[in-house]
Design a protein around this nucleic acid. Structure first.
Lengths: 223, 223
DNA sequence: CGGCCCGTTGAAGCTAATCAATGGCCGTGG
DNA sequence: CCACGGCCATTGATTAGCTTCAACGGGCCG
């Protein structure tokens, strides 16, 4: 990890942030900017949660491990997304850079102070938590009693929506990451990619470059 | 559904509510009390989310349906738990009474007004969302790539913790409810109950009355 | 050019789903 | 009080889908 600057000027974050009902500007943290390389840990499960983070560029994954080594990914975070904001004293997940990543971090205590004085900020934090909740609930829907094809189709469509990509999807994450997010094995994910390509719903131009050929059919698969 | 009274005096809710870090009293809504019978709908997915609810007695289930009829339960709500608090205009889940239930409801707009003035209330609402998020994330962990025994063991232990039961668990919900919560079929849930009894970890005194014989072994199963 | 990592593909095994039948509990009515 | 019917849970037999184990391939970097 390398620290690049402290208290830079806030640039508006252009990435889509989940819930948007009342006209609310996306949250922008203020604090120092850091960089992380591929697979580098930003914070670990169980560490003190003193800092809150926001992705500036790249993609971050959060996950928890079971005692036997199985890994469950909780989320992929894109530019604009915040993470590491805990109610308790400790981080409940590990956060790692999927590829090269830059993040802005802010002291949690500072954010709490601001929120105590600024009702608008408090509201934003609430929306943030609610947005994460919504995400997590959608994740539950994706895992319970769904076939591999349903899970992968849903995953791809979610990525399309989040990244604003029209048809050409760049997957920053490995097959293993996808498998651990969807509760499948890497082999099943790979086979399911091939299967969807066989249906002409996607085109695997490279293993991390997917063309969405028939988004509507993918939606139908999601049921 | 039957309305019983309006603006009753608030009684302190004694049920355990998830996160508890700073000394915070549990949230108590103010509003009218209603009763619902078994399987009665409190609100439906897609309806306008004008009211927020808190369970006074009984158990409530929330779920979403897929187009082919599969049902994914999101949560079981016990006394003290709040539900129906949405960011958007519509309810994202359906809420039903598992058995006989009484709830207190409050106009969302009223709650919003209070929260705008009362920073302490706003904080409570945030904690509430954060608690729900934590629950949902635990649910994700329970669904991704876990065996039926792991899921059921985790479910039973979660119930023990939430209800404060020592060893004798009263299950208010049907096997179908459990199956739809855990992403399994009713047959698998039933077989897994039998399997855990075979290991002498539980004793099925009646199909809705379970004695936890070896909580530690159940925890080990959860991995 | 060679090695390594990641992804794909193949074959066999296993877990949970599906299809089907039985059993037990409870409320109703004879 | 007992018989019947309906609902829920359990159990059995079979099937389907995913995992596991294994080998191969292809791209990237030294």
């Amino acid at each position: 990890m390398s620290v690049q600057s402290v208290f830079e000027i806030q640039r508006p974050i252009t990435a889509p942030t989940a819930g948007r009902d009342l006209g609310d500007a996306p949250l922008a943290l203020e604090g120092m900017v850091s960089s992380y390389g591929r697979d580098e840990e930003i914070f670990g499960e169980g560490e003190r949660a003193d800092e809150v983070y926001q992705v500036l560029s790249g993609v971050v994954r959060t996950y928890r491990l079971l005692s036997d080594g199985r890994r469950q990914l909780e989320a992929f975070l894109y530019a604009g997304d915040c993470f590491g904001l805990e109610m308790g004293a400790e981080h409940r997940v590990t956060a790692e850079a999927v590829g090269d990543v830059t993040v802005r971090s802010m002291r949690r205590s500072l954010l709490a102070d601001r929120a105590a004085a600024d009702i608008e900020l408090a509201r934003k934090l609430w929306r943030l938590a609610a947005g994460d909740l919504r995400r997590s609930q959608d994740h539950v829907m994706m895992l319970g009693r769904r076939s591999a094809a349903e899970r992968l189709a849903g995953f791809l469509l979610d990525l399309v929506q989040r990244t604003g990509a029209k048809a050409l999807l760049d997957l920053p994450m490995s097959r293993q990451d996808i498998a651990d997010f969807l509760g499948l094995t890497i082999e099943t994910v790979s086979r399911t990619f091939t299967y969807l390509q066989g249906l002409a719903l996607i085109d695997i131009q490279a293993c991390r470059r997917i063309r969405i050929c028939d988004a509507q059919a993918l939606e139908e698969i999601c049921a």
